[in-house]
Computed example of a mutant assay.
Amino acid sequence: MPSRREPVVKRLNRHLWLVEPLEDEPTFLIKAMFGGKAVYLHGRFILFLADKEEPWRGVLVPTEREHQPSLIADRPALAPHEILGKWLYLPEAADSFETDAQWLVQRARAGDERVGIIPPMKRARKRKSPASRPGQGNS
């Protein structure tokens, strides 16, 4: 007897509400990435919304290391992520999570250079010539 397959239901990210104020921005973009949502604004990668288990449950802030001390001074719940130390992390469990996360969104919208990074350019894949593909040689 064939097995019945349950329909695949995509689970929404629990932190999407945070970026609703950005949805009217023409440069706003959100992409699925590594089980979370990467948020872009004005060509910058500004936030990563993570809703897995700790240490991936909250908001990661892509930022240059030189900006970390001033962001932490403004929002003490932020700390370098324990795995991705180049980014700051605001854990969902922080008492100030909602207000701090909303503050980060406001700072990004205002163009605060401390919040976000310019994503690295993707390298173009080298295309194999037809002669180098199996069964495609020039005979």
Rank of each mutant, 00 (worst) to 15 (best):
R14H: 09
M121E: 15
I46H: 04
L18F: 05
F28E: 00
R123V: 11
W56G: 02
E6H: 10
T27A: 14
M1S: 13
E53G: 08
H81N: 07
A79I: 05
Q68S: 04
G43R: 04
F28T: 00
A50P: 08
R127V: 15
P120H: 13
Q102G: 07
W17L: 03
P130H: 12
D112C: 10
P119N: 08
P134A: 12
G111K: 11
I118E: 07
V39A: 07
G85H: 05
H15R: 01
R44G: 01
K86T: 14
R123Y: 10
M33V: 01
K122H: 09
P130D: 11
R75I: 15
I83A: 10
G137I: 01
P120F: 02
R133I: 13
P119F: 04
E92Y: 15
P76Y: 04
I118R: 10
S129V: 04
A124R: 15
P21M: 01
P134N: 11
A110D: 15
M121Q: 15
R11Q: 14
L88T: 08
A79L: 07
R114T: 11
R4T: 07
R65C: 00
L22T: 05
W103P: 00
L90G: 07
N138E: 08
L49D: 04
A131W: 08
A124M: 09
I83D: 07
V61H: 00
P119R: 02
R65Q: 11
P26C: 12
E82T: 13
F34D: 05
R75A: 14
G36E: 02
N13D: 11
L47F: 09
L84S: 10
L16N: 06
D95V: 04
E6W: 08
D24C: 02
H67G: 09
L84E: 10
K31S: 12
L29C: 10
G135E: 13
Y40F: 15
P62M: 12
R65F: 04
E53I: 01
A110N: 11
S3L: 12
